[in-house]
Protein backbone atom coordinates (compact mmCIF):
# COMPACT_ATOMS: atom_id res chain seq x y z
CA UNK A 1 0.00 0.00 0.00
CA UNK A 2 1.28 3.45 -0.85
CA UNK A 3 1.52 5.65 2.19
CA UNK A 4 2.36 8.67 0.08
CA UNK A 5 -1.09 8.95 -1.39
CA UNK A 6 -2.25 11.08 1.47
CA UNK A 7 0.07 13.93 2.25
CA UNK A 8 -1.07 14.11 5.81
CA UNK A 9 1.62 13.90 8.44
CA UNK A 10 -0.95 12.37 10.77
CA UNK A 11 -0.83 9.18 8.80
CA UNK A 12 2.90 8.96 9.38
CA UNK A 13 4.46 5.56 8.85
CA UNK A 14 1.27 3.76 9.56
CA UNK A 15 1.73 0.86 7.22
CA UNK A 16 2.06 -1.83 9.87
CA UNK A 17 2.90 -4.04 6.87
CA UNK A 18 -0.80 -4.61 6.35
CA UNK A 19 -1.89 -5.75 2.93
CA UNK A 20 -5.40 -4.60 2.19
CA UNK A 21 -5.83 -6.30 -1.18
CA UNK A 22 -8.50 -3.87 -2.33
CA UNK A 23 -10.51 -4.69 -5.47
CA UNK A 24 -9.04 -3.32 -8.69
CA UNK A 25 -10.90 -0.08 -9.58
CA UNK A 26 -10.48 -0.77 -13.30
CA UNK A 27 -12.67 -3.85 -12.95
CA UNK A 28 -15.58 -2.15 -11.20
CA UNK A 29 -18.70 -2.24 -13.36
CA UNK A 30 -20.35 0.84 -11.90
CA UNK A 31 -19.73 4.57 -11.66
CA UNK A 32 -20.74 4.90 -8.02
CA UNK A 33 -19.94 2.72 -5.01
CA UNK A 34 -20.78 2.60 -1.33
CA UNK A 35 -17.68 1.66 0.63
CA UNK A 36 -18.45 0.29 4.08
CA UNK A 37 -15.65 -0.28 6.59
CA UNK A 38 -16.30 -2.48 9.61
CA UNK A 39 -13.78 -1.92 12.40
CA UNK A 40 -14.57 -4.60 14.93
CA UNK A 41 -13.25 -4.90 18.47
CA UNK A 42 -12.15 -8.48 19.14
CA UNK A 43 -10.63 -7.87 22.53
CA UNK A 44 -11.58 -10.14 25.42
CA UNK A 45 -14.58 -7.98 26.31
CA UNK A 46 -16.57 -9.13 23.25
CA UNK A 47 -16.63 -12.74 24.50
CA UNK A 48 -20.14 -12.33 25.83
CA UNK A 49 -21.71 -11.50 22.46
CA UNK A 50 -19.26 -12.70 19.81
CA UNK A 51 -21.53 -15.52 18.61
CA UNK A 52 -24.44 -13.13 18.20
CA UNK A 53 -22.12 -10.77 16.34
CA UNK A 54 -20.92 -13.53 14.00
CA UNK A 55 -24.41 -14.63 13.24
CA UNK A 56 -25.81 -11.09 12.73
CA UNK A 57 -22.87 -10.02 10.58
CA UNK A 58 -23.06 -13.09 8.36
CA UNK A 59 -26.82 -12.67 7.97
CA UNK A 60 -26.18 -9.06 7.00
CA UNK A 61 -23.68 -10.13 4.33
CA UNK A 62 -26.10 -12.72 2.96
CA UNK A 63 -28.96 -10.21 2.85
CA UNK A 64 -26.86 -7.48 1.20
CA UNK A 65 -25.58 -9.93 -1.39
CA UNK A 66 -29.19 -10.27 -2.57
CA UNK A 67 -30.10 -6.59 -2.25
CA UNK A 68 -30.45 -3.94 -4.94
CA UNK A 69 -27.20 -2.32 -3.79
CA UNK A 70 -25.16 -5.52 -4.17
CA UNK A 71 -23.43 -4.36 -7.35
CA UNK A 72 -22.36 -1.09 -5.72
CA UNK A 73 -21.50 -2.17 -2.17
CA UNK A 74 -17.85 -2.76 -1.25
CA UNK A 75 -16.90 -3.90 2.21
CA UNK A 76 -13.67 -3.91 4.20
CA UNK A 77 -13.44 -5.66 7.58
CA UNK A 78 -10.76 -4.87 10.15
CA UNK A 79 -10.42 -6.58 13.53
CA UNK A 80 -8.45 -5.29 16.45
CA UNK A 81 -7.29 -6.35 19.89
CA UNK A 82 -3.58 -6.06 20.70
CA UNK A 83 -3.02 -6.27 16.96
CA UNK A 84 -4.87 -4.78 14.02
CA UNK A 85 -5.75 -7.34 11.34
CA UNK A 86 -7.29 -6.75 7.96
CA UNK A 87 -9.81 -9.54 7.37
CA UNK A 88 -10.53 -8.11 3.96
CA UNK A 89 -9.73 -4.96 2.04
CA UNK A 90 -12.50 -3.42 -0.05
CA UNK A 91 -14.17 -6.20 -1.98
CA UNK A 92 -17.61 -6.46 -3.59
CA UNK A 93 -20.16 -7.64 -1.04
CA UNK A 94 -20.85 -10.56 -3.36
CA UNK A 95 -17.42 -11.99 -2.64
CA UNK A 96 -17.33 -11.50 1.13
CA UNK A 97 -17.06 -14.85 2.91
CA UNK A 98 -18.63 -15.57 6.31
CA UNK A 99 -16.64 -14.10 9.21
CA UNK A 100 -15.79 -15.63 12.56
CA UNK A 101 -14.75 -12.93 15.01
CA UNK A 102 -14.22 -15.47 17.81
CA UNK A 103 -11.13 -16.98 16.18
CA UNK A 104 -8.62 -14.49 17.44
CA UNK A 105 -9.93 -12.86 20.54
CA UNK A 106 -7.13 -11.01 22.29
CA UNK A 107 -6.46 -9.39 25.57
CA UNK A 108 -6.18 -5.65 24.91
CA UNK A 109 -7.74 -2.96 22.73
CA UNK A 110 -5.94 -0.99 19.99
CA UNK A 111 -8.98 1.00 18.97
CA UNK A 112 -7.27 4.19 17.79
CA UNK A 113 -4.69 2.33 15.70
CA UNK A 114 -7.47 0.34 14.04
CA UNK A 115 -9.61 3.39 13.26
CA UNK A 116 -6.62 5.21 11.84
CA UNK A 117 -5.70 2.27 9.62
CA UNK A 118 -9.30 1.71 8.50
CA UNK A 119 -9.82 5.38 7.68
CA UNK A 120 -6.52 5.64 5.83
CA UNK A 121 -7.34 2.69 3.63
CA UNK A 122 -10.85 4.07 3.03
CA UNK A 123 -9.42 7.42 1.92
CA UNK A 124 -6.67 5.91 -0.22
CA UNK A 125 -9.11 3.62 -1.98
CA UNK A 126 -11.65 6.40 -2.38
CA UNK A 127 -9.02 8.52 -4.10
CA UNK A 128 -8.08 5.65 -6.40
CA UNK A 129 -11.71 5.09 -7.27
CA UNK A 130 -12.43 8.76 -7.91
CA UNK A 131 -9.39 9.08 -10.13
CA UNK A 132 -10.70 6.20 -12.19
CA UNK A 133 -14.18 7.68 -12.52
CA UNK A 134 -16.05 6.05 -9.66
CA UNK A 135 -17.91 8.34 -7.25
CA UNK A 136 -17.87 7.03 -3.71
CA UNK A 137 -19.79 7.24 -0.48
CA UNK A 138 -17.87 6.00 2.55
CA UNK A 139 -19.36 4.67 5.76
CA UNK A 140 -17.15 3.80 8.72
CA UNK A 141 -18.76 1.48 11.29
CA UNK A 142 -16.81 0.97 14.51
CA UNK A 143 -18.05 -1.69 16.92
CA UNK A 144 -16.29 -1.47 20.30
CA UNK A 145 -16.51 -1.03 24.04
CA UNK A 146 -14.20 1.93 23.48
CA UNK A 147 -11.64 1.20 26.15
CA UNK A 148 -8.41 1.73 24.21
CA UNK A 149 -5.40 0.59 26.20
CA UNK A 150 -2.82 -0.36 23.62
CA UNK A 151 -2.65 2.04 20.65
CA UNK A 152 0.41 3.84 19.42
CA UNK A 153 -1.94 6.38 17.91
CA UNK A 154 -3.71 8.98 19.99
CA UNK A 155 -7.42 9.73 19.75
CA UNK A 156 -6.47 13.30 18.91
CA UNK A 157 -4.57 12.13 15.85
CA UNK A 158 -7.61 10.21 14.63
CA UNK A 159 -9.72 13.30 15.22
CA UNK A 160 -7.36 15.47 13.19
CA UNK A 161 -7.59 13.04 10.31
CA UNK A 162 -11.38 12.84 10.42
CA UNK A 163 -11.72 16.62 10.78
CA UNK A 164 -9.43 17.05 7.76
CA UNK A 165 -11.58 14.70 5.71
CA UNK A 166 -14.76 16.58 6.56
CA UNK A 167 -13.16 19.93 5.71
CA UNK A 168 -12.71 18.78 2.11
CA UNK A 169 -15.82 19.96 0.32
CA UNK A 170 -15.94 16.83 -1.83
CA UNK A 171 -16.26 14.64 1.26
CA UNK A 172 -18.73 16.76 3.18
CA UNK A 173 -21.81 14.69 2.39
CA UNK A 174 -20.23 11.44 1.35
CA UNK A 175 -18.14 10.40 4.33
CA UNK A 176 -19.79 9.28 7.55
CA UNK A 177 -18.53 7.59 10.69
CA UNK A 178 -20.52 5.93 13.44
CA UNK A 179 -19.41 4.23 16.62
CA UNK A 180 -21.52 1.45 18.09
CA UNK A 181 -20.72 1.45 21.76
CA UNK A 182 -21.10 -1.82 23.59
CA UNK A 183 -20.88 -2.05 27.37
CA UNK A 184 -19.74 0.79 29.67
CA UNK A 185 -21.04 4.02 28.18
CA UNK A 186 -18.43 6.31 29.72
CA UNK A 187 -15.63 4.47 27.86
CA UNK A 188 -17.07 4.53 24.37
CA UNK A 189 -18.59 7.98 24.74
CA UNK A 190 -15.16 9.35 25.57
CA UNK A 191 -13.56 7.45 22.69
CA UNK A 192 -16.19 8.74 20.28
CA UNK A 193 -15.77 12.35 21.40
CA UNK A 194 -12.00 12.25 21.45
CA UNK A 195 -11.76 10.67 17.97
CA UNK A 196 -14.40 13.00 16.54
CA UNK A 197 -16.66 10.20 15.31
CA UNK A 198 -19.81 11.81 13.92
CA UNK A 199 -22.49 9.51 15.29
CA UNK A 200 -22.86 7.30 18.34
CA UNK A 201 -25.26 4.44 18.99
CA UNK A 202 -25.40 2.53 22.24
CA UNK A 203 -25.86 -1.20 21.86
CA UNK A 204 -26.61 -3.88 24.44
CA UNK A 205 -24.93 -7.26 24.33
CA UNK A 206 -28.05 -9.40 23.82
CA UNK A 207 -28.67 -11.18 20.52
CA UNK A 208 -31.58 -8.90 19.72
CA UNK A 209 -29.51 -5.75 20.37
CA UNK A 210 -26.68 -6.98 18.14
CA UNK A 211 -29.22 -7.85 15.44
CA UNK A 212 -30.74 -4.40 15.82
CA UNK A 213 -27.33 -2.83 15.31
CA UNK A 214 -26.67 -4.82 12.14
CA UNK A 215 -30.19 -4.01 10.92
CA UNK A 216 -29.39 -0.33 11.44
CA UNK A 217 -26.22 -0.73 9.40
CA UNK A 218 -28.19 -2.35 6.54
CA UNK A 219 -30.72 0.47 6.71
CA UNK A 220 -27.96 3.08 6.68
CA UNK A 221 -26.40 1.54 3.59
CA UNK A 222 -29.77 1.45 1.81
CA UNK A 223 -30.48 5.07 2.77
CA UNK A 224 -27.11 6.26 1.53
CA UNK A 225 -27.50 4.30 -1.70
CA UNK A 226 -30.81 6.08 -2.31
CA UNK A 227 -29.20 9.46 -1.72
CA UNK A 228 -31.02 9.93 1.59
CA UNK A 229 -29.62 11.35 4.78
CA UNK A 230 -27.60 9.26 7.22
CA UNK A 231 -28.37 7.92 9.73
CA UNK A 232 -31.96 6.80 10.19
CA UNK A 233 -32.99 6.61 13.85
CA UNK A 234 -31.33 3.88 15.85
Amino acid sequence: MDNDKINDPNFGDLNFNLDFGNFNPDEIETDETINAVFIVDTSYSINTYVHELNSAFNEFVEAMQKSHVADRLFVSVIEFNQKVRVNTGFQPITSIAPMDFSKSIGSVTSLYDAVKIGVKNAIDYRENLENSGVETKTLIFIITDGDDNNSNTSARTVKRILDGIKLDEQNAFSFTSILFGVGEASNFERARTEMGIEHLAQVGTSGSEIKKMIGFISQSISSVSNGQAFPPNF
Partner: peptide
Protein backbone atom coordinates in the same frame (compact mmCIF):
# COMPACT_ATOMS: atom_id res chain seq x y z
CA UNK B 1 -11.68 0.82 -19.35
CA UNK B 2 -13.17 -0.47 -22.60
CA UNK B 3 -13.81 -3.85 -20.96
CA UNK B 4 -16.52 -2.13 -18.90
CA UNK B 5 -20.00 -1.37 -20.27
CA UNK B 6 -19.95 1.69 -18.03
CA UNK B 7 -16.79 3.07 -19.70
CA UNK B 8 -18.20 6.44 -20.80
CA UNK B 9 -19.77 7.14 -17.40
CA UNK B 10 -16.42 6.48 -15.76
CA UNK B 11 -14.69 8.81 -18.24
CA UNK B 12 -17.32 11.46 -17.59
CA UNK B 13 -16.62 11.28 -13.84
Amino acid sequence: LNALKIMQYRKYN
